[in-house]
Design a binder for these strands. Structure first.
Lengths: 340, 340
DNA sequence: TAATAAAATGCAAGAGCTTACATTTCTATT
DNA sequence: AATAGAAATGTAAGCTCTTGCATTTTATTA
């Protein structure tokens, strides 16, 4: 407490155990290269000094960190939680560490975080969606840090991704909705400029409309940021501006749950008066009342596969190959035939 | 692509800009110490090479990282999300970076993560709850890494914390419940051995029972891990083993929401047949149907204050002083007078 | 214009680790 | 008991930055 004691170093341990730093190092990294007796001695010294290796020094000397960074838009809700947990589990299984950073859906912050994680020595990166400036991709290439895109799937891009086709999934859902007689559709969505998933979901609905001979322009779109309260407000706007609406698609479950609540507060019967459709199928969807009809995203599978692919790339140099997973439709209680 | 190009270093930038490495370094860290013209030159070289400083080297040379680690039990649900976000926001405001790791409520993993973050150069740590082995506290002291405990408040310990008194809060809630005529109480809780918050919450209920002349032993306790499904199962167990129960406390909202759902599935009317009480007041609580009566935890305030305190400690050496925040009771729709 | 102070830059010594290579210590074999 | 070969350990260079101190350049003043 009184004296400023420097934190112990490898050298300190070596001295305490009366061996060289090399031996201590090997003791930590390749335990079976050192004799049992020596190892015990070293381990004791480590414990005694409460020594912990300096990551930076290690990274610098060995030129790898066994760390993979994940950059997600937000930790504030559960949208990415499950997938991330699966990703983390997979990494942990192989001795890798995950570092997470969040961007609040802002491109500038994302860039900052990418630089931060790369600077911290992330051997690879997990990214959500494809949409970001070419400059960042150039940066990653210059730094030789492989990045895997997930939560999206798009073969038209050269960059491999492990995810699902947002557009196709939403299109299937929209077709069902239209089949149920809905003609006046609305969408509560996030800003689509920098969010390719949101964009794809919108296009999916429009595809279904066109396929059913509806004019895609009639889709009433309200843009907002993600959040329960935001979903509620947006729903209100929709019903004010387009009262004839019978089905409201939401960019994700968080928005949908907000919309659902506000609908109830405003006296709409769901799904009799208006249907509400979410996206993601997070826990919230099941808990909501009425339980939310939504598009199920294979979060865990996606996270696990992403981890697997990245580790294979790092350990064996196996190129990542794109994987398309299936998003399925989950019909619960917020979708019903259109009222007349 | 074809040639393995090493990632650019400070030296490369220096060469490209025809200055010394020292100048480049200053350009990055103390821009106004270098002449405008030089700076432009250097910045251009940096951009051209897509250079990014190596964090490890920088940390080693400068002996600080402006990084604070946060170790939470889980990212799988929203319990810690909001508080963490606030913490992160506060850190970001002051140029600090947050690193998150999760432990799955396991002590061995927590220890591992603490070591990992310290090794990575975290200047300080945010920890949840007080309960952990003295050895870890010794380690942190040896490494001279300050740690702040949050999500709990306990003056009987020397270690300062910024949080609320779990026991007191739950006790207040339990008193209300008892006031409503409930005599047969149950608790669905996490394992309390390594979770001092869970333990405190249990004690809070027991305090209230004793104060009302009920025998604390009659509290029917079912232990489980956190999760919606787990809450559901536990609720079923409770009602099977103690059918006379009229009020079920849950260790957190996630469990409560699960209990709530299973109650409905089993044909119990909530709150007429049985009351269900949560803890934390996360979004889920409001969305649940009926909306959950719970104990509101000041997540954002807690996160913000914790960040503030840690930064002050790091920047100005101001010792952290314990702060007790108020947890309030939120009465929604899952609590009613006991049936007779 | 010379002298002096201030500003800008450079030099080089670390910071704590890993690892190729050199050296020493065992083990097994004859 | 001598010795080859394997196993264990040691030596020292190098990984990429920061920073105290020395040196050079620029600005200021008489």
């Amino acid at each position: 407490m009184s004296k400023e004691q420097p934190t112990p170093t490898l050298q300190d341990v070596a001295t305490a155990a009366k061996v060289s730093t090399a031996t201590v190092s090997r003791c930590l990294n390749f335990p079976d290269q050192v004799k049992e007796k020596t190892r015990t001695k070293v381990l004791k010294a480590i414990k005694m000094l409460s020594y912990s290796p300096n990551f930076g020094a290690r990274a610098m000397a060995s030129r790898r960190t066994d760390t993979i960074g994940a950059i997600i838009p937000t930790m504030g809700n559960a949208i990415f939680a499950r997938g991330l947990q699966a990703f983390q589990d997979e990494l942990h299984l192989h001795g890798f560490t995950m570092l997470v950073a969040s961007t609040s859906y802002r491109e500038d912050i994302e860039e900052e975080q990418i630089r931060a994680l790369v600077g911290r020595g992330a051997d690879a990166l997990l990214l959500i969606g494809h949409a970001r400036s070419p400059e960042i991709y150039r940066f990653l290439e210059a730094q030789a840090v492989p990045a895997l895109v997930t939560w999206a799937f798009d073969t038209s891009l050269s960059r491999p991704s492990i995810g699902f086709d947002n557009q196709k999934a939403m299109c299937r859902m929209a077709k069902k909705v239209i089949d149920l007689g809905h003609r006046n559709l609305a969408l509560v969505s996030a800003e689509t400029i920098l969010n390719d998933r949101a964009k794809a979901r919108q296009l999916g609905i429009e595809d279904a409309m066109v396929a059913a001979n509806l004019c895609a322009k009639t889709l009433h779109i309200v843009k907002t940021t993600y959040g329960i309260e935001e979903g509620a407000t947006a729903f209100e706007q929709v019903m004010k501006a387009a009262p004839q609406t019978t089905a409201v698609f939401c960019g994700n479950d968080v928005l949908a749950v907000g919309a659902l609540r506000r609908a109830r507060e405003l006296g709409f019967k769901v799904p009799q008066d208006v249907s509400i459709i979410g996206f993601d199928d997070i826990e919230l969807a099941e808990i909501a009342y009425p339980a939310l009809t939504t598009v199920h995203v294979p979060h865990r599978e996606m996270g696990r596969r992403a981890g697997e692919a990245l580790i294979k790339l790092l350990n064996e140099g196996t190129q990542i190959e794109a994987v398309e997973l299936e998003a399925s439709l989950v019909f619960r209680d917020t979708l019903a035939p259109a009222r007349n």
